Simulated scan of single mutants.
Amino acid sequence: MYEYMKGQVTFVSPYYIVLEVGGIGYQLAVANPFRYNTETKETLIYIYQAVREDAINLFGFNQYEEKQLFMKLISVSGIGPKSALAIMAGEDHVGLVKAIESDDFKYLTKFPGVGKKTAQQMILDLKGKLDDLVISELKGDEQISLLDIDLDGSNNRYLEEAIEALLALGYSQKELARIEKELKSLNLDSTDAYLRQGLSLLMKK
């Protein structure tokens, strides 16, 4: 069982990243691949290894608390690793904990793959058990400004990658169509920024 790996991220896609450690490239499924970049020489990523009859999958997390939250989420009946990553992708973990503690079914069912029954199970299984997970929120230069986008510029590539990443997390074309206009109105300088804003808009719809 792996606890963490330390190496260089050599590849980033909407579906996973590759972390090279000692000359070996490990494919890691992560909640938001575009949080990582290939320019950083060394990155420490906490690892969860899932073993099934037909596959061995590795899941990566920036913080130890994120790994613990993931493990608690997949302990809930009806939530698999993919659904857990989609729930964590928005990074509003404080909002998630508040929703569970306050029986906010409406908030929880906004996540892909989470219906009313699963939301009820989340509350039943996790209420009162997440207080020890203090996860820092990202601030500073990741604030998003609202400006008109140059659709012919390089930013459009970031938007397309973000949309692909949202689809990979399990959001439907119909759900993404509701936020497409708002996303296109933004002038953001990275795929990560578009992805974060997209997740924020999806939780508000």
Rank of each mutant, 00 (worst) to 15 (best):
F59P: 00
F59E: 02
F59M: 03
F59Q: 06
G60V: 05
G60E: 06
G60K: 00
G60P: 08
F61N: 10
F61H: 05
N62F: 09
N62M: 13
N62E: 14
N62P: 10
Q63K: 15
Q63W: 02
Q63A: 15
Y64I: 15
Y64T: 15
Y64M: 15
Y64Q: 15
E65N: 12
E65P: 07
E65S: 12
E65W: 04
E66M: 06
E66N: 07
E66R: 01
E66P: 10
K67Q: 08
K67F: 02
K67I: 12
K67S: 06
K67T: 11
K67A: 11
K67C: 13
Q68G: 01
Q68L: 15
Q68R: 10
L69K: 09
L69G: 07
F70H: 03
F70W: 00
M71Q: 10
M71A: 13
M71C: 10
M71W: 00
M71L: 15
M71F: 01
M71V: 13
K72H: 05
K72E: 02
K72Y: 03
K72V: 12
L73H: 02
I74P: 00
I74F: 05
I74W: 00
I74R: 05
I74S: 12
S75Q: 04
S75E: 12
S75V: 13
S75K: 10
V76N: 08
V76W: 10
V76T: 13
S77C: 10
G78L: 12
G78Y: 09
I79P: 05
I79M: 09
I79S: 02
I79D: 04
I79N: 05
I79F: 09
I79E: 03
I79Q: 07
G80K: 05
G80D: 09
G80I: 11
P81A: 12
P81Q: 09
K82R: 15
K82E: 14
S83F: 09
S83Y: 00
S83A: 14
A84L: 07
A84C: 06
A84V: 13
A84H: 12
L85I: 01
L85M: 05
L85S: 03
L85K: 06
L85Y: 03
A86S: 10
A86G: 06
A86R: 03
I87N: 02
I87K: 04
I87L: 04
I87P: 02
I87W: 00
M88D: 11
M88G: 04
M88Q: 08
M88A: 03
M88T: 01
M88F: 01
A89W: 08
A89N: 00
A89Q: 07
A89R: 04
G90D: 13
G90F: 10
G90Y: 00
E91G: 11
E91Y: 09
E91D: 12
D92Q: 13
D92H: 08
D92P: 11
D92A: 08
D92N: 14
H93L: 14
H93Y: 12
H93I: 15
H93K: 07
H93F: 14
H93S: 11
H93M: 14
H93Q: 11
V94A: 06
V94N: 07
V94M: 05
V94G: 10
V94S: 14
G95P: 10
G95M: 01
G95Y: 03
G95F: 00
G95K: 07
L96F: 14
L96D: 01
L96V: 09
V97D: 03
V97A: 03
V97P: 06
V97K: 07
K98G: 00
A99F: 01
A99I: 04
I100T: 01
I100E: 07
E101Y: 06
